[in-house]
Design a protein around this nucleic acid. Structure first.
Lengths: 176, 176
DNA sequence: GTTTGCATGTAAACGGTTACATGATTGG
DNA sequence: CCAATCATGTAACCGTTTACATGCAAAC
């Protein structure tokens, strides 16, 4: 799912600036599944404007930099819907953490523990950000996605806590 | 985690051809966390060879194309370890599926159901591939990672089955 | 007879990240 | 005083994907 489509989707919820879109990626509770950087958002928004899928309104502000507020247009809505109607790209979960764990026996146990701690910490932060969202305010789709993220991260944390000793201690023999 | 490092890691387990490395990504039980295409594997292997991190042995075969069997060298092992000792890139879970679900109320219910079915099916295939691995043969790190993948995918499937009706039926009112 | 498996590679295109540039204001 | 927040943007770089090229053998 490219940044253009993502921006379009966010704008179906209401107008926003590039800056606000980025914020949403950081604090909206979607962090687990989507993200984008300024370097991709701003060009995407400009291109969408050229193509007439969004419109801009420039707002001068005092004591704050000027902002460009983007709104989705009718062709934009149609284009977004069309994008969701064709086959979605596959999900991809790229995990340097999991990759590294594959080789735990080559690493000093302290390094393995540090990686586990780090991963657990990160996951907990994400989980908190999800649970901080006010469920009342969300549409069913959002509730569903956040619940899914919560379920997956909770499962990961539970699993890690239950099994980390198996790779932290260079076990000699397992009694099976 | 770039393809170079991934190839290096795989080769710590024993020699392999580019083709076999790709296979491993498809059937090794890591699918959930790592993948790479031929277009990135072959150039990576060539570069690693130039840099002396791996060595090649060319094998002529009858009735099969010739193959290049790669082995990791001592500098290669050192380089790999060094890569795992420095801070890992963050995990990223990019999910066009989750993104689309955010907008379920804009879509025809049949489309939402189809997306859910599709996602469930894909997850089940992945899960099967993981459980097909012979745990006896795996090192602890591998068992850990596959168990983690299993836990996360199972949690996702369970969640989806329990909550899909909430976005499949355009609920009028929720009784909270 | 067509698809699948084996096997390696290249080139172009793509999408995205990172770093840089600018600059005022507010909070710690 | 320094860091963070608000706010937009560009350019270089990077790694990867996609499509293409080649070709035989076995299985269906």
């Amino acid at each position: 799912m490219d940044v253009r489509t993502i921006c379009l989707g966010i704008l179906t919820r209401g107008e926003a600036t590039g800056y606000e879109i980025k914020k949403l990626f950081e604090e909206g509770g979607y962090q687990h599944f989507i993200e984008a950087s300024f370097g991709s958002i701003y060009p995407a928004l400009n291109r969408l404007t050229e193509e007439g899928l969004v419109s801009v309104r420039e707002e001068a502000q005092e004591k704050r930099p000027d902002r460009k507020v983007y709104s989705i247009t009718l062709p934009g809505r149609a284009g977004f819907l069309a994008a969701l109607m064709k086959p979605l790209p596959e999900d991809r979960h790229r995990s340097p953490f999991a990759f590294a764990m594959l080789f735990s026996q080559l690493l000093p146990p302290s390094r393995v523990s540090a990686m586990l701690d780090d991963h657990v910490r990160r996951n907990r932060v994400l989980l908190e950000q999800v649970s901080r969202q006010d469920a009342e305010r969300l549409v069913p789709g959002e509730r569903f996605v956040m619940g899914l993220g919560e379920a997956m991260m909770t499962a990961a944390l539970t699993y890690i806590e239950a099994h980390r000793t198996e790779i932290e201690n260079p076990e000699s023999e397992a009694a099976e």
